[in-house]
Amino acid sequence: MKKHFIPLLAAICVLTVVSSAFAHFMVLYTPEIALDEGRDLDVRVLFSHPAEAGHMMDMGGVQEFYVVKQRGDATAKKVDLKKYLKEITWSNPHASAPAFSALIPKKEIRSMGDYVFVMKPGYYFEKEEDLYMQQITKLILNVGGIPGNWADPVGLPCEIVPLIKPYGMWVGNVFKAQVLSDGKPVAGAEVEVEYMSHMPNLNTNSMPAKSSVEYPHDAFVTQTIFSDVNGYITFGVPKAGWWGFAALGVGPEKEYKGKELGQDAVIWVKAEDMK
């Protein structure tokens, strides 16, 4: 018994250490972000480790959920979407947690143009590190091909502002963006990058156990890049699908309930294969 127990204990320790190395990611998801015309939009909000369909976390509710839409150079309009949120349970193979769904009706997504969705969750307490986390998340969608405000800062406490249309990327394109805190560029920001290798299933509100990627080493699960002296990040996109970027601890708020707070800026982008 003892002989078997020690390797088991060692394995558990290793697993624990390895899993804590994976990144936390707020996921703001809808299957398509380059639409030909307006339609009802099925959205999910969850807090997980998307590269491995891993641990699920309670995001602490949603503080803000809205869209800033703009067609061409017309005035941008902000529309609150909180009323469409419904609490659900999101289940991954080995974990589940409270999450949200939203069916945003066509009347909100009717016009051509850009739609910059913003989701500001509550606070998540990370016991292992004794700190709070809050990931302010953006997702940018286009209807009909008329661009708008995709490259404009929303004015969030912290955000990642793309320099390439985030809904119009080919595989092999470089995702370039600027990390901002209180509107100012953040030099040397640590940015984690994850691929959505377990595609969310909106019917079952879950991620499947099977991964679309074989990771040769832990360093490939969550890649780490840094912003340059002017706050710019660059990342060559190697595979079609969803890529998440999280700039860690760049937000101006540093404390919550007497504990350290890490306020992160997250953006999700999607690349397509050239066929």
Partner: peptide, 11 residues
């Protein structure tokens, strides 16, 4: 009807 151009310019 709403119009525009693929470069975002006004219609």
């Amino acid at each position: 009807c709403e119009g525009g151009f693929s470069d975002g310019s006004s219609a």
